[in-house]
Design a protein around this nucleic acid. Sequence first.
DNA 1: TCATCGAACCACTTGCAAATTGGTTCGGTA
DNA 2: TACCGAACCAATTTGCAAGTGGTTCGATGA
Lengths: 258, 258
Amino acid sequence: MSNPDPSADSSNFALGRLRALLDDSSFEGEERLPPERVLATQIGIGRRALRRALEVLEAEGRIWRHQGKGTFVGPRPAHTPTNLEELSKRTHPLEVMDVRLEIEPALARLAAMRATNGDIERLLRLAEKTASSSDADGRELWDSALHRTIAEAAGNSLLLAIFDMVDRIRQDTAWRLLRERARSGDRQQIYVEQHRRVIAAIAQREAHAAEHAMREHLELVREGLLKVMTSPLPNRMDGQIQETPVTANTKKEIRHGT
Amino acid sequence: MSNPDPSADSSNFALGRLRALLDDSSFEGEERLPPERVLATQIGIGRRALRRALEVLEAEGRIWRHQGKGTFVGPRPAHTPTNLEELSKRTHPLEVMDVRLEIEPALARLAAMRATNGDIERLLRLAEKTASSSDADGRELWDSALHRTIAEAAGNSLLLAIFDMVDRIRQDTAWRLLRERARSGDRQQIYVEQHRRVIAAIAQREAHAAEHAMREHLELVREGLLKVMTSPLPNRMDGQIQETPVTANTKKEIRHGT
DNA sequence: TCATCGAACCACTTGCAAATTGGTTCGGTA
DNA sequence: TACCGAACCAATTTGCAAGTGGTTCGATGA
């Protein structure tokens, strides 16, 4: 499995040396390898040669490295990104929409069941504001506030936290252009009407209708996003988005159970 | 609303001084007030007197303070807890179950549609392990791994991140006792059978069946949790949990457009 | 000509100490 | 009794140094 071409090793004996080290019990329990500079002098080769060998081992999945941290034996840990920047970098806009399609209809249903009268008043006021707002930025703000208020009205703090997390990713700068184009033109009127329907259903405590209306709304938003993304203009963005996830993944593969 | 007893202000003129400062345009755009020590000397009073005045203003909601950060004008920001500790502290176990009931059936459905053959193999292996495990800790581990593998198989990194977030809160130490009691006894066999059904549906690409089976499973888990929580023993936990959730919601208010 | 090396620099991460800030206690003073 | 000043505590932020992998460059030598 590991070495179909032994000549590769013989030409570069650092690799063989390292394989021996890894197989050796000396690094059995050790997770972390010495720094490259140290390891290089220990083996008696240059750092560059050592790094070439390490690249092979990393590609094989026997070690993993991270700038600033070190080199470690074993498969790369699962690494669920916990900070938002990383998450938004490696999350595709469509993924976000899929998640919204799972979460927000449920939020609307819960809101219909548990919203307070104060919540409903706020929703009604927000709906007016959203409709009357003229510029794109204004719409964006009011729209965001509206969806968040529904999330609050659902009365589950954990779901609210999840909504906020998704929303912060959605608002990430990388997709601002996309969103702008997605909500351009006559769609805006439809969105307003759909919002109205969702809020009316919540106000009348019709849980199922609220869920359905919200899903319908988000499906339209998703469709608009899809249309914009496949259109010719924003190629630059396409590249930007589909490039970034690769950087860390040239070697990649999720390394969970394997 | 603010000042039913004017003598309070006259006896402590720092309060009036501060009110003037806040109403003054000098702090119109300013969020942050000077440090207490500076502000005290500026006004010409002692720090303790200043702090009493600040306490009043904070109670009125005109300012908010945070140790190590400073004193700020305006209502305390919404504060969606972003770190896990805080979230688990103020999240009720039933809230977590409600969220799982929203998320995981969707994950199961997506997994049925998008799981790779490798995913399915892993699931089948995990199901065996879960069934064969005898002690409670072992079951807990395998169960967790099983649910996470399903989440991975769904193929949406953002949903996976959300699942991980919820799962970490679920695993928080505070509820370990509860969970242990909840999965005691004969329920365990039913859980195993339900897991088997979910996995079978995923393996046969029956999205709807997978979603339904997962929901059924989680509803039973929820019921078990409910039964345990209403039983007499863990009263101490009840108090601890039901205190917290109020704090964040007393003022709420979104800070987007306004 | 090519591979290798050593050195220097860049980018990221960690850890720690200092500074800043609100929170609290204490004794002195009018 | 009320206030003040000082000192200390605790939480947070900031800045810096060290250590690490990632990269580039010129020198060396086969």
